[in-house]
């Protein structure tokens, strides 16, 4: 039917110019406006980034140009006592690193082992049951994990290691629970990496007389190593940026310590505590949290970029 109409010769009255007119490019203003609006929606994300960088950098600049503050002492000092004008970031950074390290000690083996089980061993049915449970764990708000750290993990640690040895607020408890928090993330990203290892490699290993474990550990995991590494890097970044668990369970007050059973304050924990109180704008306290925020932003950004870079190279290997 359609083709009939199309193939019918042009009516005589319709001369060449009117055809030209009918097919001429028509400005579609509505279309252009819509495309423009959608483009603006995309630009909002750019503005967000610019906003973050500008806010953090400008306030941090104010902080560093304050008389009491020396940028060298900021990066070398181990005491953070605003009242005395001492702003040494290391007391906050060590706590952050310690909690992230403890978290990774929990999340790395548990997450990778779970990923191997789900990818190499579990039947589709078991996978179908376990994956939603991991999703539930990933969906629980961090403040609930903080509550869990304070009311379950800390008492447990104090029971095991002695009330005198373990303070009520301590980095061990916070770190372990941050670890639990990021297990689902490590698992899901590592599992994706293991999954993308071609089946032919597993068959080759079996064909040489390898057992299932030998195939999994010595062929599949090494083949997925870059993806797994990327997962770990992202997880570290997540642990460093985690706030509520440490704000609740790690303690309030910067302290330069390497004892996981003592209280200490992380970068994020400090920002939350300072901004949660009555804070007057443009005070040195107010500006200092932006300096910490800038450092935090840069660390996590670098980690995320590294992870993406590793993943990019990994993809090239197999596709």
């Amino acid at each position: 039917m359609e083709s009939d109409t199309v193939l019918r010769p042009l009516p005589r009255s319709m001369d060449a110019t009117s055809t030209e007119k009918a097919l001429a490019k028509r400005p579609r203003i509505g279309e252009t406006i819509i495309e423009g609006l959608l483009f603006l929606a995309g630009v909002v994300s750019i503005l967000t980034t610019i906003g973050i960088v500008w806010v953090l950098a400008s306030q941090a600049l104010l902080f560093f140009t304050t008389e009491e503050v020396s940028i060298i002492k900021f990066f070398t000092g181990t005491e953070w006592i605003p009242a005395l004008g001492q702003f040494g970031i290391w007391s906050l950074v060590t706590a952050t690193l310690m909690i992230s390290a403890i978290a990774m000690l929990v999340a790395l083996p548990a997450g990778l082992a779970t990923a191997i089980y789900l990818s190499e061993y579990a039947s589709p049915r078991t996978r179908g049951t376990l994956k939603p449970i991991l999703e539930v764990l990933a969906g629980i708000p961090t403040v609930v994990y903080g509550y869990f750290a304070l009311t379950f993990m800390t008492p447990l640690l104090r029971q095991i290691f002695g009330v005198d040895n373990v303070q009520v607020f301590n980095t061990a408890s916070a770190g372990m629970v941050v670890g639990i928090l990021i297990i689902p993330m490590v698992t899901s990203l590592s599992e994706d990496a293991l999954h993308s290892v071609p089946n032919s490699l597993r068959q080759a290993a079996y064909g040489l007389g390898a057992t299932k474990l030998e195939t999994a550990i010595r062929v599949v995991v090494p083949a997925a190593l870059s993806g797994i590494t990327a997962a770990f890097v992202v997880a570290i970044s997540r642990a460093i940026g985690e706030t509520m668990i440490v704000a609740i369970a790690a303690g309030a007050g910067p302290k330069f310590t390497f004892n996981p059973f003592e209280s200490a304050e992380t970068m994020t924990g400090h920002i939350v505590r300072i901004s949660g109180g009555d804070l007057s704008y443009d005070s040195i306290d107010y500006n200092s949290i932006f300096a910490i925020g800038l450092l935090l932003f840069l660390i996590t950004l670098v980690l995320n970029v590294i992870s993406r870079f590793i993943v990019g190279r990994f993809r090239e290997e197999y596709e």
């Binding site: 994300s45 953090l56 992202v234 970044s237 997540r238 706030t243 994020t268 949290i289 993406r308």
Partner: peptide, 25 residues
């Protein structure tokens, strides 16, 4: 490409940083 990369990177920014953006802006 900048918009796309930027979105991917924003997804990895710790939530507390957004709080500071919100506070200042």
């Amino acid at each position: 490409r900048v918009i796309q990369t930027n979105i991917n990177n924003l997804a990895g920014v710790p939530s507390i940083i957004y709080g500071m953006l919100g506070l200042a802006i």
